[in-house]
Nucleic acid binder design. Sequence first.
DNA 1: CAAAAAAGTTAGGCTAGCCTAACTTTAATT
DNA 2: AATTAAAGTTAGGCTAGCCTAACTTTTTTG
Lengths: 243, 243
Amino acid sequence: MVARAKQRAPAVAPKKKEPLTQPVEDYLKAIYAIGKGTGPAATNEIAQRLALAPASVSGMVRRLADQGLLAYERYHGVKLTETGRRAALRTLRRHRVIEAYLARALGMSWDRVHDEAERLEHAASDELVDRMAATIGEPIVDPHGAPIPTRDGAVDETEHMSLAELAVGKSGTVARVTDEDPQVLRYLGELSIRPGRQITVKARAPFDGPITLTVGKQELSIGPALAAHVLVIPVRDRGVKRR
Amino acid sequence: MVARAKQRAPAVAPKKKEPLTQPVEDYLKAIYAIGKGTGPAATNEIAQRLALAPASVSGMVRRLADQGLLAYERYHGVKLTETGRRAALRTLRRHRVIEAYLARALGMSWDRVHDEAERLEHAASDELVDRMAATIGEPIVDPHGAPIPTRDGAVDETEHMSLAELAVGKSGTVARVTDEDPQVLRYLGELSIRPGRQITVKARAPFDGPITLTVGKQELSIGPALAAHVLVIPVRDRGVKRR
DNA sequence: CAAAAAAGTTAGGCTAGCCTAACTTTAATT
DNA sequence: AATTAAAGTTAGGCTAGCCTAACTTTTTTG
């Protein structure tokens, strides 16, 4: 019979200055995205985001815990340590600065910047990223409206309401689109649903049906799943039908 | 006793569209650099350039030959195939366009662009590289004066004379500096020895001694090893001491 | 032209990251 | 509370790229 020994990681986070590998940066980013920087992330969800087998995640997660990047308790998911959080935010900053730069300085469309940034974020130096940010005027958000962490790891973590939750008759300004699929982004672009635009909800069909909106002078309707990816800042009583 | 069977690669270059890995791109670049695109490259030299053990090169070189990127004959070095040459030039174009872009659009100094480009070249898409090139006006050379291959794989392969070979009394315009060590580049920069500058050789000390030059109004001397990395286009009879 | 030196190759091992299959633990359901 | 389902982990394997050590081929040299 095996004694139920404490399996806590015996390592004391050996501070290494070696740069993180590309897969490691991806794990940290995924874990950050799931737990919003502080909450726990489940093995299966990490696996799904990274398109890996859960078994692979179990293995990697243990290594990252040994390195002091994660707090890991077997069968109970992981959390980022402070070190891990900072590493994740550094990658996130790179990603979003690069996206913003590609769009503003090189005229790349908002549906292509994500994939490009996904690769460049692992290769660009901090110096380069800072130069990019400076060149386009220290942007605060990326082309999809996602907030860019500062050099010292601060992020605007405001939670926005989604278009799917906005009451009929209310208006809101699009703050962010939380979908990176190029096809989806192109479609939204055609409807001119993009950060900064003002949208009014005209009707909502029952049983999770389509939502009818006006964007500028256009009237159109989109599905609720898509609407959930459009985050808005409600406008206080304007565009509300007077009664 | 083992029959001395023909060990030729049995594979017929299975045309795969999978992108080349970073190490593979580095091998091809190194082989291109050694053989100027056509000549053979020795195992040891490849190993030295990539800072790898010769044994590792033997292994990789075989795989690349099986993929149809190299022509390989055991114990006699490798040559690039046409496919390999094109792949090498694509990487080289990326590298140099990126260098040029970093310098011109982002104000990065010429001694830092190499290392940055070395990483970015593996991550940047062709689309991005083309946009960079277009943005800075389709440059022909990188910040060190190295020619940039065109999209369809053409390169200016002109061989320049080096400053070490320029006769005393003759002048030349710096075409290129073939050293990527940041320290060396910073030093040359301080002496304002950089592409476009005109230099006159004033004296050459015997026994491979230092070479005295004038750059602009400055007079200075540098060692022959360094001078060999400064490529020049001789100016026909100007600055020659009349006698 | 034989012996030594240099260059190149093979053999055997290692690590990071991934996989599938089988097993264990936790959570959900009756 | 017992059973089933879901989630997570371990075991065992694979590939790309690297290494060192030992061996073979080619080149150089006395």
